[in-house]
Design a protein around this nucleic acid. Structure first.
Lengths: 129, 129
DNA sequence: CAGCATCCTTTAAGATACTG
DNA sequence: CAGTATCTTAAAGGATGCTG
């Protein structure tokens, strides 16, 4: 049972409650809340993993999307990529400090979604329309 | 300065670290982390607001996406819609208890994104490629 | 193994016009 | 005011084949 705080004051200075179009937060938010971004960050929050491992754990992801997502997160400084010059190649991905900072906030959210998904998505109470 | 926890153990029983394809959490997560879903939930976390207010605050949203997003969130039981039978019509939207529960987790995440966006998105340190 | 390049399909999203 | 309906465009995503 969580404590339910009602009309929650937003703790930061958004212009008018939500940040404006063109604001960099919109972009960053899109990256980290993207379909696969969330899963990759979540997976990596358990520690360093290699490409094939991520591909398997983020079930359903294509190679294209895995590459694209990892590249975006790396550019954002949230994920670190370490390639070893061996044959066959071995590449390990891990969260940066900033990435861990983020995942500390992301994991509870995903946990909540995980806990509530079945009731919310399947057991619809009053299907409108 | 946040405390940085390193290899973070995932607090819930995911199958193999991340939940499987077809899992209802994926669907719910898509709803609440969608581009406009986040902004609407965030905006409503400050309290009841009407259609026109939401449209203005979620800058850049189209009527179509506003309607669609609100409908999805309402179906998920996160947002409540109260229409008054007056002319001109007046419709107020607010978070349900579940919605508040969620926004309590969502707001810190968005706050983090807001705080870090400028550095991460604009001030790229080592642009790869 | 860890990718990248290409093509193609599907979905999300935007613009505009109209209504109770 | 609070929407719906329709059309069009843009973006996301998937499938396949190839490479160091």
């Amino acid at each position: 049972m969580e404590a339910i705080t009602r009309p929650l004051p937003l703790p930061m200075s958004f212009a008018d409650g939500v940040f404006p179009a063109g604001c960099p937060s919109r972009t960053l938010l899109d990256h980290i809340t993207s379909k696969w971004g969330v899963l990759i960050l979540l997976s990596l929050s358990e520690g360093e993993q290699r490409w094939s491992e991520l591909r398997r754990r983020a079930e359903g992801i294509s190679e294209k999307m895995l590459a694209q997502t990892l590249k975006t997160l790396e550019r954002d400084g949230l994920v670190s990529r370490k390639a070893q010059p061996v044959i066959p190649p071995r590449v390990d991905y891990s969260l940066t400090d900033k990435g861990y900072e983020l995942s500390g906030l992301l994991v509870p959210l995903v946990g909540w979604a995980f806990d509530n998904a079945d009731e919310i998505i399947n057991g619809k109470r009053s299907p409108l329309a």
